[in-house]
Design a protein around this nucleic acid. Structure first.
Lengths: 261, 261
DNA sequence: CGACCGATTGACACAGCTCAAATGAAGTGG
DNA sequence: CCACTTCATTTGAGCTGTGTCAATCGGTCG
């Protein structure tokens, strides 16, 4: 994966479904974009607003969230570099969730007009974006299942597994180790538990020897056990064979390099 | 809404985002379709399979579901007439959930080839389908929030409100009353609770005078109270003004016509 | 009539919540 | 370089919503 250009991770993901024509790659490369930095916890878009551009994550993490009962926060998804956080604003008038930066983050805003234009002109790109949207929906279904039918430690294990896979797929996790600037409260808000209980779960995962967890740094020490505990299978993420064959998952490479770093 | 043709409810929904050209309506009307009947609980599509057509609900209900821990079932969505249950199979190779009939149901299978064709030819139809897909995603986000941050009675109240609105939007609910062939176990599987507890919650809703509940027949007796209890707002369903202005919600018409039918 | 399925009920157990406080780490300003 | 603040993590002690197990009841259908 070519890294270094703003759209490189997006392009990499879009080509999961098949190589794009030079012209289509060019279309992506030429998308007008406004790069903006956000501080930790800064709001990128507010529920109810009607943005005129979409938000591509370049660096760091965003999360979408909603409130229940007026004050109970639920994180509905984590967005990692290469993800477009709110493609739906292209066709839905108002945003049904808020969007915030988990830690410091860099995003690019892509005007709706330009995106609609390439979706109309290139069936291949339209297909690639459809695919992105549908993968996001599959993740939502998995989260519904996670929240509805797994207990706290399983939920946490599952979310950690999911992030590990999604991050390694865009080269942001190495050796089952990744950095993410979340707090245990963020974790709790994504797993539908309280932060107090999230803390106890994290401690239990440490005690079981499944993960090292320095809050901002997560290292999975026993992938197979964690995936089993979290009832995790990466099927729903629809990874292409080329990505699945990368090492790091299934602990194929857990022994090749120094597990301490 | 014109009723009577297989695609009428779909067309009605597609036009929520704006009137379609006669040619586009024609394209929908001419979609090749295979109509099939399913018995209650019969499987329409199995997780892991790779269908070559999409499933349009014509009558009755479908539900998508996944298993956690091998045996705990979670319903991830209810599909009502006019919904396409698995549009994502157009672009994702394998189904990440199973699809079953809640009660007896009639569905139409639409070949991928025909659907891809109209998505490529008509930007307006593509936009309408994008909109459908994004509304589905918004529902998933709401479900994530429901499961993660509301307690049992709130979850049930919320799901009932959602179904009432979605059904009345396609003329399948009158006077806040609708028929749905679910069991309390189905309800439990959608709300992430056990069937025993679902029963207690239903009894409590009855006792509070919020709903009449004859299992297959749900009548909301106090919409405002139920919506408040379920922390429900229909914003995420992205109803067009024309539909929101219909009576029945907000109990505007709770008295105008016969509540028995 | 018997079989089966869904609704209902009761007794009890426990996962996770609430409330409250202590500890620790990181930054800020003097 | 040290007080001071702030925020995240951690711990403890009850409390409660929901699960589990098991039985009963009622309706439907062959």
């Amino acid at each position: 994966m070519e890294i270094g250009r703003p759209y490189s991770r997006l392009l990499y993901r879009l080509e999961w479904s098949g190589v794009l024509s030079p012209q289509d790659r060019q279309r992506i490369a030429e998308l007008p974009l406004t790069v903006t930095n956000f501080a930790a916890n800064q709001e990128v878009a507010r529920q109810g607003s009607a943005p005129s551009s979409c938000t591509l994550v370049l660096g760091g993490f965003l999360y979408s969230h909603k409130l229940a009962r007026g004050s109970r926060r639920q994180i509905t998804s984590f967005l990692v570099p290469g993800n477009i956080a709110d493609l739906h604003t292209l066709y839905l008038s108002s945003l049904d969730h808020s969007l915030s930066a988990l830690g410091p983050a860099v995003v690019a805003f892509l005007p709706h007009t330009a995106l609609r234009d390439i979706l109309e002109r290139s069936p291949a790109l339209a297909g690639a974006f459809w695919r992105e949207a549908f993968i996001e929906a599959a993740i939502f279904r998995e989260w519904v299942t996670n929240l509805g039918r797994r207990d706290a430690i399983e939920r946490v294990a599952h979310v950690v597994c999911e992030l590990a896979v999604r991050l390694q797929a865009v080269d942001l996790a190495r050796n089952l180790c990744f950095s993410i600037p979340w707090t245990q409260t963020d974790l709790a808000n994504s797993c539908g538990i309280t932060s107090v209980h999230a803390n106890r779960v994290v401690q239990e995962l440490r005690r079981l020897g499944l993960v090292d967890w320095d809050s901002k740094q997560v290292r999975i020490r026993d992938w197979n056990a964690l995936a089993k505990l979290g009832d995790f299978s990466d099927d729903y993420l629809q990874l292409p064979a080329a990505v699945k064959d990368k090492p790091l998952l299934g602990q194929k490479v857990a022994s090749t390099s120094d597990p301490k770093h």
